Structures are given as structure tokens and as C-alpha cells.
Amino acid sequence: MSEAKAVFESMLGRFDADEADDMEAVFQFDLDDADNYHLIIADGKCVMVEGENDDPTVTLSMDLDTLKEVMSGELDGMAAFMQGKIRAEGDIMLSTKLTQIFPL
């Protein structure tokens, strides 16, 4: 299993269906140094798919280390965005809910 896939697998294990209750969204993760993945959230479920989605709700671009640091709580996502470590396109406000949907 790739390191990137392992990060997304751990996120799926922490998925909080209550937080994502009415959400329908596609989070595209474009990783500079690893395979791209997207997470589809709908009907209180989350599915991980390798590759790119044609119509993501929000696209987050970063390197794998940044993703790992944000999802482990070592780095605040908003701080990473402000430092230019994360680039976002689309519904940027939605990306601020990632840590609620995938709590530590």
C-alpha cells in the first residue's frame, strides 16, 4: 500500500457520519509527490477513489508530508493554507470542515 493510500485509509477509519450528515461533496487531493485521490461524501458515507474526479467540489493541492501533518493534527490546516503549503480551488469553505469530518 502506498504511503498516500495509507493516509486516506486512516481518514476513512475516522470518518464522522454525523458531522457529514447532509453533505454531498467531492474532495479532490492533488498530491505533488504521490498518487492523487478523491473522497466522495454522500448519504452519510465516505468513499475513497484513486485518481481524479471530473467535477470536484473542492480541490486541495499539497505534498504528502503536508497532508500527513494536517491529518495527524501536527499542522493546522488553515495555517498551512496561509503559509502556501496548501492550495485550494472551488468551495474553499468546505475544506475548513475536514478536521470535523475526520476528527483525530
Rank of each mutant, 00 (worst) to 15 (best):
M1K: 02
E3K: 15
A4Y: 04
K5L: 07
F8A: 00
E9I: 12
S10N: 12
S10G: 06
S10D: 14
S10C: 04
M11D: 00
D16Q: 02
A17S: 14
D18V: 12
A20C: 03
D21W: 03
V26K: 04
V26C: 09
F27L: 06
F27Y: 14
Q28L: 03
F29M: 04
L31I: 14
D33R: 09
N36A: 10
N36Q: 15
L39E: 02
I40V: 15
I40P: 00
D43C: 05
D43Y: 06
D43W: 12
E50I: 02
E52L: 13
N53L: 00
N53Y: 10
T57D: 01
V58I: 13
V58Q: 01
V58T: 09
V58R: 00
T59S: 15
T59Q: 13
L60N: 11
L60S: 14
S61E: 12
D63L: 00
D65T: 05
T66R: 00
M71W: 02
S72G: 08
S72P: 09
G73D: 08
M78Q: 14
M78W: 05
G84P: 00
K85L: 14
E89G: 10
E89M: 13
D91I: 00
M93I: 01
M93D: 15
M93G: 09
L94Y: 11
L94M: 11
S95R: 08
K97F: 08
K97M: 15
L98C: 01
T99H: 12
T99C: 03
Q100K: 09
Q100R: 06
